[in-house]
Every structure is written in C-alpha cells, then in structure tokens.
C-alpha cells in the first residue's frame, strides 16, 4: 500500500477493524460523530464504544482529531464558539447532546485532566474541595479531600501542607492534585489529554500506576503520543488518522495486542512503527 495515498489516508477504517462489544454495555458510545470548527471539519463519522471500567487510549498523528474526540465525551467542545458537533454521544443510556442535558453536570460525571497541570491559584485543599463545594456538598469536606488525594496517590506528599498553594508543589504533584480534583466529585469517567507528557519519568510512572489503579472503579479515556505508555496502561487502543483534507477518522480500534502487536489496518502498522506521523 502506498502510505501517502490520499484516498487511503482519508478512509475510515473498515468496520471489522473497529471493535464493538456485544456482551457488555458501553459506558460511552459515540455514533456518527462529526465535529467542525467553523467551516473546517475536524473529525468525521466516528463510531466508538468505551467499555465501563476500562482504560482506552486514543492514538494517532498530530492533528488527527484525538483531542477533539476526547472533548466530545464531556461537551468541552461547547466552550469553543466555532465548534459544531453532529451525531450523538450516549453516556449511561442518555445522549449528552440532547437539549435538556446540562453540560456542567455532565462534566462532573465525566471529568477531565489536561496536558499541563492546571491547579487553581488556591490552596491544595481548596483545589480538591472546589467541585464538591459547587455541587453543594459541605459535610465531610475534609474526608472528601483526603480520600480524593489518597485515590490520586498524592496524599502522603501533601497532607502536611494542604493550606499551601496548589502551584507550590512539583509538576507531577500538581498533576495528581488535578486528578484528585477531578475524582472529588466521584466521576464515572475521567478523560485525560496527554496527562504525563509534561512530566519527568518518575512522575510519569506515578501517573501511569495511578491510572491502572483507578481503572477498577473509573473508566479512563486517554490521549497519548507515547505508544509505550499506551501499551502499558490501556486495555484498548483507538487509532485515528487524517488524510490530506485533514479530517480525522477512526481507522482501527481493538485490544492492545491487536493494535500494537498485529494491527489489522496497514496505516496503523505504519503509524505504530514510525513510518508515518
């Protein structure tokens, strides 16, 4: 196959290369999902199921629409004025794009962690307590903060300085505080956009371990450029690719064994072996 062939790169993956789950109900399911920024289409006709309590990696070359797809899962694209979303995203049996749905509530249930740690310029305690407070939770706030910081594997490192600024700790700790902040409202899904790409190897390892531990209770969808990381932490990998017209499409979705060991789509093989991208 000529890998620079415009038509091939622009094609969606064939259906048999995209895993579906017959026996389990997916916690998230995108159908015919397309996103445009103004007149420019960013992703087209994405159909993907995310099984509950799994870790799913979104991989693909820069500009293929991974982050756009990720942001669709909790309506973060609503915050971009030029963005238009078509299709549906079902979450726990409900289309999150239905008119009656409150996007803020969706974002509590489907949290997000970004590439650069972004603690608020408040104390560590206030950062973690922020979501529960907005939700009207005032009882046992201390316990919620402690529990969330413990789940994010950062409690022991910050427990004696909860009043210090969230910005006063290391980058790796800041990122885990942001994860604690997302966990504090007990989300069912956490979306992560390259959460370890700005961190050193030790902090990266801590985040990866944390992701694996969390996956027994929370579903995680993660965008990563680090393929070794994807193989280490995820159960499934989804590969996106954009052709010359730069519209991202899902071309393959399967177990890690399939995507990184024996891809079905030649473009996946070319991407994971560094021939394109």
């Amino acid at each position: 196959m000529a890998l620079n062939d415009t038509d091939l790169l622009s094609q969606a993956g064939s259906a048999e290369n995209i895993m579906t789950f017959d026996d389990i109900e997916p916690i998230l399911e995108a159908r015919d999902l397309s996103v445009s920024y103004g007149t420019k289409m960013a992703i087209s006709n994405v159909a993907i199921q995310i099984p509950k309590n799994s870790v799913v990696s979104l991989i693909g070359p820069s500009g293929c629409g991974k982050s756009t797809l990720l942001r669709c899962f909790n309506r973060m694209n609503d915050l971009i004025s030029s963005a238009t979303v078509r299709g549906s995203v079902n979450f726990a049996g409900q289309d999150i794009y239905a008119p009656a749905v409150d996007p803020t509530e969706i974002r509590f249930r489907i949290g997000m962690v970004f590439q650069r740690p972004n603690p608020f310029p408040k104390s560590i305690y206030e950062n973690v307590a922020f979501g529960p407070k907005i939700n009207g939770m005032t009882d046992d706030l201390d316990a919620v903060v402690e529990n969330s910081l413990r789940r994010a594997a950062v409690w022991d490192e910050v427990k004696d300085r909860l009043g210090d600024s969230g910005l006063s700790v290391s980058g790796g700790q800041q990122q885990r505080i942001c994860i604690a902040r997302a966990l504090a409202v007990n989300p069912e899904v956490v979306l992560m956009d390259e959460p370890a790409s700005a961190l050193d190897p030790i902090s990266t390892q801590a985040i990866e371990q944390l992701i694996q531990e969390l996956s027994s209770e929370v579903t995680i969808v993660i965008v990563t450029h680090n393929m070794q990381q994807a193989t280490r932490i995820s159960d499934y990998a989804a590969v996106m690719m954009a052709g010359e017209e730069r519209v991202g499409r899902l071309i393959e979705y399967g177990t890690n064994d399939q995507v990184f060991g024996n891809p079905k789509d030649a473009r996946t093989e070319a991407y994971v072996t560094g021939r394109i991208g």
Binding site: M227, Q228, T231, F260, G261, N262, P263, T268, E269, V272, T273
Partner: peptide, 9 residues
C-alpha cells in the same frame, strides 16, 4: 527502538 507491531514480531 522500543519496536511495535511488525517490527517487534
């Protein structure tokens, strides 16, 4: 190279 897919095999 941390090889993947066909390279690893």
């Amino acid at each position: 190279q941390a090889p993947m897919a066909g390279d690893l095999r």
